[in-house]
Computed example of a mutant assay.
Amino acid sequence: MIQDEGFAYGYLKLTYCLRKNFNLIINKKKVFRLCKELQVLRPQRRIKTRHPRRLARNRVITGPNQLWETDLKYGYIAGENSFFFILSIIDVFDRSIVGYHIGLACEARDAAITLKNALLKRQLYEAEKKPAIRSDNGPQFISNLFEGTCVELSIEHERIPFKMPNKNAHIESFHAILEEECLSRYEFESYAEAYEIVDKFMRFYNKVRIHSGIKFFSPMECYQLLRENRLELKPVRV
Results as ranks from 00 to 15, higher is better:
residue 185 R to H: 14
residue 15 T to E: 04
residue 44 Q to N: 07
residue 221 E to F: 06
residue 233 L to V: 03
residue 119 L to V: 03
residue 191 Y to G: 03
residue 61 I to T: 05
residue 107 E to P: 00
residue 123 Q to N: 14
residue 21 N to K: 12
residue 112 A to T: 05
residue 206 N to T: 03
residue 137 N to T: 03
residue 113 I to C: 11
residue 136 D to W: 08
residue 125 Y to T: 07
residue 4 D to T: 12
residue 168 N to K: 08
residue 45 R to V: 04
residue 3 Q to C: 01
residue 175 H to D: 03
residue 108 A to L: 05
residue 82 S to V: 10
residue 171 I to G: 03
residue 186 Y to A: 09
residue 217 F to D: 00
residue 20 K to W: 00
residue 120 L to K: 15
residue 144 N to L: 01
residue 203 R to S: 12
residue 93 F to D: 02
residue 229 N to V: 07
residue 147 E to Y: 10
residue 198 V to P: 01
residue 213 G to T: 03
residue 34 L to N: 05
residue 53 R to M: 09
residue 21 N to Q: 13
residue 139 P to V: 04
residue 132 A to G: 09
residue 111 A to K: 08
residue 222 C to Y: 07
residue 237 R to Q: 13
residue 145 L to N: 07
residue 51 H to V: 07
residue 180 E to A: 13
residue 56 A to Y: 06
residue 215 K to E: 03
residue 215 K to N: 08
residue 124 L to Y: 07
residue 78 A to Y: 12
residue 201 F to Y: 12
residue 188 F to W: 06
residue 129 K to N: 09
residue 21 N to I: 01
residue 230 R to L: 10
residue 157 H to T: 04
residue 80 E to N: 13
residue 202 M to I: 14
residue 32 F to A: 07
residue 226 L to V: 05
residue 148 G to P: 01
residue 187 E to M: 07
residue 100 Y to E: 03
residue 26 I to L: 07
residue 196 E to M: 06
residue 78 A to Q: 14
residue 91 D to F: 09
residue 82 S to F: 02
residue 91 D to G: 06
residue 204 F to E: 08
residue 119 L to P: 07
residue 183 L to G: 01
residue 233 L to T: 04
residue 109 R to F: 15
residue 26 I to V: 12
residue 118 A to D: 02
residue 121 K to F: 13
residue 160 I to K: 02
residue 16 Y to C: 06
residue 17 C to I: 07
residue 132 A to V: 02
residue 17 C to L: 14
residue 124 L to T: 02
residue 96 S to F: 12
residue 165 P to E: 04
residue 197 I to D: 05
residue 22 F to M: 06
residue 154 S to D: 14
residue 63 G to A: 15
residue 69 E to N: 12
residue 208 V to M: 12
residue 2 I to W: 11
residue 158 E to S: 10
residue 87 L to G: 03
residue 188 F to Y: 07
residue 209 R to E: 01
residue 22 F to E: 13
residue 58 N to A: 14
residue 105 A to G: 09
residue 210 I to M: 10
residue 59 R to P: 00
residue 3 Q to Y: 06
residue 78 A to M: 10
residue 62 T to Q: 08
residue 230 R to P: 00
residue 186 Y to L: 09
residue 192 A to E: 14
residue 131 P to H: 08
residue 75 G to Y: 09
residue 38 L to E: 08
residue 189 E to T: 14
residue 147 E to L: 11
residue 146 F to W: 01
residue 11 Y to T: 02
residue 50 R to V: 12
residue 68 W to S: 06
residue 191 Y to W: 08
residue 171 I to P: 04
residue 193 E to K: 15
residue 231 L to T: 04
residue 74 Y to L: 13
residue 47 I to H: 06
residue 27 N to K: 10
residue 28 K to H: 15
residue 121 K to V: 03
residue 91 D to K: 11
residue 26 I to H: 02
residue 59 R to A: 13
residue 179 E to Y: 13
residue 119 L to N: 11
residue 52 P to S: 13
residue 206 N to L: 04
residue 104 L to K: 13
residue 72 L to N: 05
residue 132 A to R: 14
residue 174 F to M: 09
residue 188 F to E: 05
residue 206 N to H: 06
residue 167 K to S: 04
